[in-house]
Structures are given as C-alpha cells and as structure tokens.
Amino acid sequence: MAVSSKNTGFWFVAPAVSLMFLLLIAPVLVAAFLSFTDYSLGNQGFSWVGLENYIKMFSRSTYSKMISASVTYVLLVVPLSIGLGLGAALLINSVRHFGDFYKTIYFLPVMAALLAMAIVWEFTLHPTIGLVNETLADGCGAWTETVFSFGWIPGIDGGQSWYSKGCQDSFPLWFGDKSYSMGTVAFIGIWQAFGFNMVLYLAGLTSVPRELYQAAEMDGAYRAWDRFRLVTWPMLGPTTVFVVTITTIRSFQVFDTVEAITHGGPSKSTYVMMYAIYEKGIQQNLMGIGSAITLVFLVFVLLLTLVQRYFVERKVHYA
C-alpha cells in the first residue's frame, strides 16, 4: 500500500470523526451534564441540583406513568407487529398467486408519513362521525350484531357482549377514553410497523434451504406446524433477534401519533418518553429534567442492544 495513504486515511475519516464527536458524542455528554442542573435556554446561568431530576423521575407519578406508558406501548407493538409480520410473511410465501400484491399493500404504511396517517386515523376513529364507529353503529340490530355479539355460542350472553353494549350505549371514544387510548395508539404503531417486519422475514425465509424441509418430513414432521417448529422458526432465529431489537428501539421512539392526536393524554395514559422529552425540554424549557429523561432513554436503548449482541453471540444461528 502506498506510503501516502497514511495521511490520506486520516484526512478521509477526519470530517466523519469530527462530526461524530460534535453531533453524537458531545450531545450525550451535554445531556448527562445538564441532567444534574436546572438549566433553561435563555437563562444566564444554572445551578447544580445534584440527583434531584433523577429523584423526581423515580418518585413523581407523572414519570412513573411515562415509563409505564412507554413500556406498555413497546410490549403491545413489539410482539403483535412481529407476530403479524411473521404470519403475513409465512402466508405470502405459501400462496401460489398474488403474493407480491399483498406484499405491496402491507408495505404501504411503512412508506407513508406517519404523521399524516395518524391524522387520518384520528378522523377514521372519530367518536361520532368516524368511519369505524359509524360502521359499527350501522351494524346494530342487523345480522352483524347477532354474529359479533357471539350470543350464538352456547354459554355466552350476547346482550352482555362488547358489541351489544356498544349498540345500547355508545361505542368507544378511542383516543379520548383512557382505557382505550394506549391500545388505539399502539394499534396505529402495529399497523405501521408490521409490513416492515414482514419484509425482513420474507428475506429471512428465502435463506432457509429447501432440503431441510424434505429432511424434516422424512424424519416424521408431517404436519405444517411441526415443520415450522423444527425448521422455519430456528432458521429464522437471527432475523428474529434483529427484528425484535429494531422494532423495540423504534417503538421506544414513538412520537408522531402521540403529539398529533393525544398529547400524552387522557390522564397521561399515552405519555411516552419521546413526547415527555419534547414537552419538558422544548415546550416548557426544563432542560434539566428533559436531559434526565434523555439519559434514561439512552440507557434503555443501550441495554436492549447489549441483550441483542448477547443473543447473537450465543449463536441463534443454526445455519
């Protein structure tokens, strides 16, 4: 290799390295520093408050609600969007026709601006004139109520079902009702994310060798479920580890739907961490507490990635 490359290498990485320090490393340090202060933008100075911001975070109910909102969201979105993504991938992989068509449709939400789609979902789920509640109300008293109140199943009182009660009383407010709000916001998250996971699983499926299925069948795995359990699922191990990590990190970062629709409410039921950082830091100019939330957030992400690396090294690889 040419001697001159010593310096060339240095100059080639210099811009990237300086920007990494300036835009990634320094901000983390700044956040860590500010999390021990009561800094506000525009104030001349600031004072040290020690661990006060962190103590607040672990004692005030607002912040415990914040953590539980973020964790609930992640626990809803990650398993469901991965389950649906995997299910869709397996079905699409096994049908003879139109596989590409379904793939395109399921991938649309990944491409569409989440903010725009959040606003559309807000209309669609509007309590009185939204398409969903209108459709539900139109079905009342008709065959749909009979079917979906499940009264035709022996032992179930149709009059007490969710659907019949909705018909008598009213259908949910979705975003306005704190027992539905988180579920509804998470639903949008799942709707948006599962197509992405599906595509990753489809890519994973193409790398499963055909012979393994034949071998499994010869060894007595006649049922589809057995072949899935013995071949497909283990072979998809690396994909799954990756999909779980990326979906979790992305779900922790949910912001658009919350900011556009619920503003963290009702009664903090959707007060997720990114929204808390925005509200405390940007809107209320409380940079100290905002930075403390940032740090807790970064620790979450770091832990997740370490768990992922651990699994990858434990050889989820069977290939």
Partner: peptide, 17 residues
C-alpha cells in the same frame, strides 16, 4: 459505538447547541 445512539433521543442537547 455511535450506531447505538438514536439521533432523535439526543434532540435536546443538539437543539441547545
């Protein structure tokens, strides 16, 4: 190492800068 840092998460310090 930097791959671990989501830019959205460090929005506050970047905004201050």
């Amino acid at each position: 190492f930097c791959l671990l840092i989501p830019v959205h998460a460090i929005a506050l310090p970047i905004y201050i800068m």
